[in-house]
Computed example of a mutant assay.
Amino acid sequence: MSRTRLLALLVALAAVLVAVWQRAHAVERLGQDFDEATYLPIAFTYAGMLEEGRWADIGKLRENFEHPPLVKLLFAQTVRATGAPEPDWSNVPMGQPIPDAARPVFRATRSLSAVAGVLQVGLVALVDPLGALLLAWDPYHTKYTSQAYLEAVPGLFAVLALLAFERARRHGFAPGWTAVSGALLGLAAAGKYPYGLVGGLTFLPFLVAGARTRWRPWAAIVVSTAAAFLLVNPALWSSPFALLWESITFHWDYSHNEHVRRAALPWYQPLAFLTDTWLSASDPGIYLTHFNARALLPLAVVGLPRTWRERPVWAVGAVVGLVFLLLWNTKWPQYLLLVLPALCVCAGGGVRTLAHGAVRLYRKVQGSRSRVSAGG
């Protein structure tokens, strides 16, 4: 094994270990967050339906209908598998240490998210080990893949979709891998709609440029995406188009409602989140470093040209994701997970670009010194 490959392997291993350590601590130490107070009671409702075989009733549940039920159903199955009892939610304070009575359900459901988060880091390590290390200790990725949020599972499917789409592109968009990437994209959308939207917009320019007027690749990705999305989305089974439209339009209305307007977050708020140490400083016992707040965006900018040459799908994913975050009115910090894996890949390319530049500069200086010495 070459020295370069050995170093890459060691960095990838370090990334996975950091990801496991940081998320394990976050699962245990983070207090209840706002969305957990919505998703976990629904998970127990779904668990009751599943226990009684009432699949048809899943689509009738109107609470939180704006988000598809896939991740909440996974939380429900986790609750059933572990036997975690439902706590008295009125006795689970927001942002405070989890009471002992509620700890089993939080530990079980958060562990599901954490496993998906660690798997994302491991998959990114296949693309860029340095990018995986940046993702491993990123405070936003850690927090929202260590709580019972919707982000971790669709984020995992989105990363898998990018990898499969890269393979499809290398094979000239043969229907097989193209269909696999579409199915994974559909699963990502069935976890949370924006992951499917950002992934689809990332794929689109490559399909336009590479598939052109060939109908098979387009059919493969459209059919597989739609089939996977509907298959794992029982909330839409009774009336797919009407219910999907209702759910999607909710997000548009919500992004313009009083709650969002009252928050008054500026259009550049995602960039402010990425460059602020507020989260990494909030609990030094969980988040290892402020490094990403200081360097992630600059490194991604430096590494974007290199990533475009080496892994163009990830470069486009980073740009599309950032543009989406800047344009979309809802600016909550968990939305950063739409772009963080691709952004970290670009930043890993930035680290390598700077390192190679430093080596070239050093060799140039050494060569100049040698010529001066020889001339003297």
Rank of each mutant, 00 (worst) to 15 (best):
P93N: 14
E258F: 12
G199V: 11
L73N: 11
L70R: 04
P284L: 10
G303Y: 00
T249I: 11
G53E: 03
A190N: 10
I58D: 00
C346K: 01
W328H: 07
P266R: 02
P104I: 15
T82N: 12
P270V: 08
P341H: 03
P68D: 07
Y362I: 12
E28I: 05
P93R: 14
A101I: 10
E246I: 06
P284F: 08
P139G: 03
N91H: 15
A102F: 13
D35I: 05
L184E: 03
P129I: 03
W218P: 00
F273D: 10
A183V: 13
R311S: 07
L361R: 15
W89A: 13
Y149E: 07
G95A: 13
Q334C: 05
V180F: 07
L361T: 14
V208Q: 05
P87V: 14
L243T: 14
Y46Q: 02
V20K: 00
V208A: 15
Q334R: 12
G200Q: 01
H256Y: 09
E63L: 09
R360E: 15
A295V: 09
L10D: 05
P154G: 10
T145F: 11
V351S: 03
D88S: 14
A189G: 14
G83A: 12
A281Y: 11
W177E: 08
R369E: 13
P305W: 00
E51H: 10
G357C: 12
V372D: 15
S368E: 15
G317K: 00
A24S: 12
F229G: 00
L327F: 08
S2R: 14
V16N: 06
L9E: 09
Y362P: 07
A220F: 00
L207A: 02
H251V: 02
V180Y: 04
T82G: 11
A26D: 05
L70P: 05
G303V: 00
L40P: 00
A209W: 10
V127C: 01
S224F: 04
R261Y: 06
A15F: 06
A188M: 02
E151M: 09
P41R: 02
A8C: 08
G59T: 07
T38E: 06
Y254A: 10
T142A: 13
R103W: 14
T330A: 11
L337K: 00
V79S: 05
V313N: 02
H25R: 14
D88R: 15
Q147H: 10
A235E: 05
V124E: 03
L296Y: 01
S181M: 05
A179T: 09
L130W: 09
L185C: 15
Q366L: 14
I58K: 01
L123D: 08
G53Y: 00
D283F: 09
T225Q: 04
